[in-house]
Nucleic acid binder design. Structure first.
Length: 268
DNA sequence: CCCGTGCCCTGGCGGC
DNA sequence: TGCCGCCAGGGCACGG
């Protein structure tokens, strides 16, 4: 599931390949993923100037509009020569160099929107997106969290608080900050929030470094699977010893999400 | 406004 | 072995 580091890896891979390429045509095979009615017409003859990212959203900067792409759970991009459509390929961008950029998504959860430069940050889905951890002011986050009555896990997954963390990196951030995912946000101290933000930054930076190391040839999968899974301390480690205290890691549900926690190191 | 629930979707897995 | 039912999960709509 692509979170900020994986999306950043995709961005860094795609940008040099797609820069200055013009979209000559588009095919959409699953309409629910496209939230802009005249999506295809709006993209024709648009040239890709750059690719940005906000949280987990990819932002394709075109001549005079912006395409927003969210990979959700399993979205992937491929660049190939034209070929017969494969299963799970839902959007195909035909480029002026004869190649095709393919969006592949088994669960069809991904979303696309076209927006104008004037308002793309002022409307859904970017309107209420919070700052990324490295841009976040811990004092501001602290004040927001004090007012709420949810678990820290839910708060860190809430992209309106901070953008970029998903289920994996939230578990890893909470472990490093030695805080229990079920701890209520209203009970957090300033120091604990500062620690959360700091560890979120560290985890994401470390993962970006490792994601970047697995970029493959652009004819292969443009990957969302880096090497950070080797660095995970609690996520997916049910029944394995905590790397700090050797207590068995447990798996629980928090806010409906599978959550891995060291019951000894992480305090409520 | 705040929070919980359900929806979208399909591969894979547990249970029988 | 084979089949069926259910679960996972990001973001958002909706309802209390």
């Amino acid at each position: 599931m692509p979170e900020l580091p994986e999306v950043e890896t995709v961005r860094r891979t795609l940008e040099p390949i797609l820069k200055d390429k013009t979209i000559v045509d588009v095919a959409v095979y699953h309409q629910n993923m496209v939230e802009t009615p005249d999506f295809i017409e709006q993209l024709k003859n648009q040239t890709i100037k750059s690719i940005d990212r906000m949280g987990k959203f990819l932002i394709f900067k075109l001549n005079d509009k912006v395409m927003i792409s969210h990979l959700r759970m399993e979205g992937k991009y491929f660049l190939t020569d034209p070929r017969k459509k494969h299963p799970h390929e839902h959007v195909v961008f035909y480029l002026d160099n004869g190649q095709t950029l393919i969006y592949h998504d088994v669960r069809k959860f991904g979303k696309f929107q076209i927006r104008s430069y004037e308002n793309y940050r002022k409307v859904s889905p970017l309107l209420k997106l919070g700052p990324e951890p490295k841009e976040a002011n811990p004092q501001v986050i602290y004040k927001q969290l004090k007012k709420r009555h949810i678990t820290i896990k839910q708060a860190l997954l809430d992209q309106h608080v901070m953008a970029g963390l998903g289920n994996i990196y939230v578990d890893e951030t909470l472990f490093r900050a030695q805080l229990h995912p079920q701890k209520n946000t209203s009970t957090l101290t300033k120091k604990q929030v500062e620690s959360l933000v700091k560890h979120a930054i560290d985890v994401l930076n470390h993962a970006i470094e490792l994601g970047g190391s697995t970029i493959r040839s652009y004819y292969a999968t443009i990957g969302v699977d880096g090497k950070f899974q080797n660095e995970l301390k609690v996520h997916t480690k049910k029944d394995e010893p905590c790397p700090v205290c050797q207590t068995q890691i447990i798996k629980i549900k928090v806010g409906g999400r599978g959550t891995y926690v060291c019951p000894r190191c992480q305090k409520k």
